[in-house]
Amino acid sequence: MIEEAARELAARGESARRVARDPVNLPMIRNWTEAIGDDNPTYEHYAPPAMAQVWTMPGLAGQRPADDPLGAMVAVLDEAGYTSVVATDSEQTYHRYLSPGETVEVSSRLDGVTGPKRTALGEGWFVTTRSTWYVGDEPVAEMMFRVLKFRPSGVAGTAIRPAVSSDTEFFWAGTALGELRIQRCGGCGRLRHPPGPMCPSCRQTRPGYVVAAGEGTVYSYVVHHHPPVPGRAAPFVVALVELTEGVRMLAELVGVPPSEVHIGLEVRVGFSRVDGELTLPVWRRR
C-alpha cells in the first residue's frame, strides 16, 4: 500500500506552483540576518540564498496545498501507523541571488520513498522530496528534503544490544561489513556458533572464522505478538536457521508474512544496520 501510493504520487510529478505571500523584501532579510547573526553587507542588496524556502513559507496558519506530495505521503504513512516524523537531511542548490522586489514560486515533487528500515527510533520509511523555486520560468533554487516517518518504538533509541567480548567481536565486526561469520577452530577446523574461546573438540584456543554463504533453512521459528518490543512492530518473526555450513543461528526473518513462514523455508542472510555501532543479521526468503 505504501509503495503503491509512493509510486502514484511520484508519477504525478511537480505540484502546482505556489506563489510567495510577499515579494523578496529588505525587512524580512534584516530580520533573518539579525537572527542568524550574519552581517555580510551584500545582504543590503541581495537576499541570502539560504532564505529561498523562507519566501514561500505558508505562515503560521497556513495549510499545505492538497497536491503537496510530502503532505500526501505523510498522510499515507500516518494511516499505516508510521506516525512520528524526524527530518534527516536537506540539500539546497542556488542558481543565483534574489533581489528585493522579485516574486518567487515553489513547486515540489516526490522523489522516492524507501523502507521499511529499522532505525534506532523504530521502523520507518524515508521520504524524499525535491522542490524548485522559480522566478517566472527561471529556476533560481532547488532543495532535496528527506524525512523519516517512523512507528514510535515506545522508548526511542533502546535497541537491545548484544554484550560483546573479545571472543565474539569478530561476528559483529562481520555484520557491520555485510559478512556472516562462523567461528572456525584454527586447530581442528570445527565450525561453531555461538562462538567461544576454546574449541570443545580439540581444546585449542586459536579460533578463526569463515564467511558463511549465508543460506539456510528455517529449523524453528516464533511469531512475536506481545508484549511490545522496542524497535520492532509486532507481529514479527524470529527464526532459528540451519545454515548450509551446518551450524544454527538465530535472527529476525523479515519480508515474509508470518502466515507464509514454515519449517524448511529457504532463507538467505541480509543485514540490518541499527546504527553506527550495531548491524544485525536478518533472514530473508531465498
Binding site: 535497541a159 537491545i160 544490544r161 548484544p162 554484550a163 560483546v164 567480548s165 571472543d167 565474539t168 556458533h193 555461538p194 516464533v222 512475536h224 508484549p227 511490545p228 518490543v229 522496542p230 520492532r232 514479527f236 524470529v238 543461528m249 538465530l250 535472527a251 529476525e252 550495531l278 544485525l280 543479521p281
Partner: peptide, 22 residues
C-alpha cells in the same frame, strides 16, 4: 522485555527473541 547482560544473551535478545515465552 528486559535486556539481560551476558555474551550468551547477545545471540538472542538483540535479534528480537526477548521474553521467556518467546
Amino acid at each position: 522485555v528486559h535486556t539481560p547482560d551476558g555474551v550468551d544473551n547477545g545471540w538472542h535478545y538483540p535479534m528480537g527473541l526477548v521474553t521467556p515465552a518467546a
